[in-house]
Design a protein around this nucleic acid. Structure first.
Lengths: 253, 253
DNA sequence: CGCTGGATTGACTCGGATCAAGTCGAGTGG
DNA sequence: CCACTCGACTTGATCCGAGTCAATCCAGCG
């Protein structure tokens, strides 16, 4: 049985067989959660660690005026907040986008795994550093990129992340996001996002249709986005056949 | 002799006398660095941990077109990247804004302190979580706030952070930032920032003049910004007389 | 078969960028 | 002590990207 969480951590740090077993046990009985359900809300006391094993989720904030800003996408293998309760309350909410399989690991259990298998803590720490790099890239996008660059950049990121965990091997990837959701990620209106997508389509760079992202011309997309994947710190991926398709994007720069 | 780094960590976690001594020794001989000097650049291998003891610095990224995006401000007590070399390369640069006193703590030394005094690691981990919360607030600002809200929000944040470390006790704080720097933080042009500052002045909310931020009407400023300081997680601050002035902002909501 | 929420398109408006002149203040050198 | 210089700050005029408002289209679904 595959467990993308463990796969991801193994990319970051060598894990002992015992560590893997412990992680497998901790995440073996995920709950099945419907789409658009909050896992935790801003203001809540951080609870267990959530591990997404299947499906998509997002971090977000709601503003006083009702506006919503998506802060990060969580995909299979990602986990929310090894906060382990260090902070008194959540400064944002987390919600499923699609129906999802989510394991909840109690804090005490997580602590025990960390102390028995320090390499797990190390791997999760690296994962967090990568997430931080991603946030910095988002800030940069919102501040200094035009809307078409921003859209292209996000699509590059999502595509690479999907590839990294083996969700695709060609230039198509399932991306079940509404345009409203994407607009809330990119700081633009759904109307304008729609027009930008049209423009990207007409330039022959990419298409987004019925939950599917199709990279038509990786080279062009990367060039439009000004995409440099260094912030995703793939350095930790094992070498292997899966590299070759990333190279499509790499070489296109 | 004051050491704002230690002060800050003590807010987050009880530190033993030995831990404090070890930290003091590690940061006792800061280098004096001129304004506008890079401490480390995007692409570099992460080196030692930098601890800002005096002055200001910032994280930033440069885009292909030459644009710059400020990602975070580092003030006395902040430290950059207990990365401890987990990542292969920096995804952004760090530069001093003013002349600054910066201690560099070698990775091995940092590791030793962590293993001898786990509470130090804990405190630094909390500091990092707060920094993440700040990044999320920035993403939210850039994505969903108007320019005047964004400016007001940043000023609220900087003011509170200065207050938290005792840089001010009234409504004035020294903020030696050029408008160009601020514009690069907020994703706007210096010209437009200038007009927004004028507007904030004319609304009687705040003034920014010759490196000094003056909060004229905290209530109004907070209201313009839609500021909620929960993301700064002050929960960890010790209670004390210093609270009363934060309350000016708190109550204004 | 009508309902509903997302996607798409058009018309119009407006916030913020761009371009272009100044102005001001702190150094610097004569 | 004053003229010169160089940044940074200000202000005005104009332009354009993106928001707003409003119809319409479309697919999935009870």
């Amino acid at each position: 049985m595959d467990n993308r969480f463990i796969d991801k951590l193994r990319n970051f740090s060598e894990l002992s067989a015992e560590a893997i077993l412990a992680l497998r046990q901790a995440t073996d009985h995920p709950r099945s959660i419907q789409a658009r359900r909050d896992l935790i809300r801003e203001g809540d006391r951080p609870g267990p660690v959530f591990v997404i094993l299947d499906g998509w989720a997002c971090r977000y904030k709601i503003l006083p005026d009702g506006g919503r800003q998506i802060l990060a996408y969580l995909m299979p293998g990602d986990c929310c907040d090894l906060h382990v309760g260090l902070l008194a309350e959540m400064d944002h909410s987390i919600q499923t986008i699609t129906s999802a399989a989510v394991a909840t690991v109690g804090r005490d259990q997580m602590e025990e795994i960390f102390s028995c298998h320090p390499e797990v803590g190390r791997a999760m720490y690296i994962a967090q550093l990568v997430d931080e790099g991603t946030m910095r890239a988002w800030i940069t996008s919102m501040g200094r990129r035009s809307s078409i660059e921003r859209v292209a950049h996000l699509m590059c990121e999502l595509y690479i992340r999907c590839r990294n965990i083996g969700l695709t091997t060609d230039m198509v990837v399932s991306l079940p996001f509404s345009q409203i959701l994407l607009a809330d990620s990119l700081g633009m209106t759904p109307v304008h996002l729609n027009r930008v997508l049209k423009e990207l389509r007409s330039r022959g760079a990419m298409e987004l249709q019925r939950g599917k992202l199709i990279i038509v011309d990786p080279k062009r997309l990367v060039q439009i986005a000004g995409f440099d994947e260094n912030y995703l710190h793939r350095r930790f991926r094992p070498a292997g056949e899966s590299r070759q398709i990333n190279d499509h994007l790499d070489n296109a720069r």
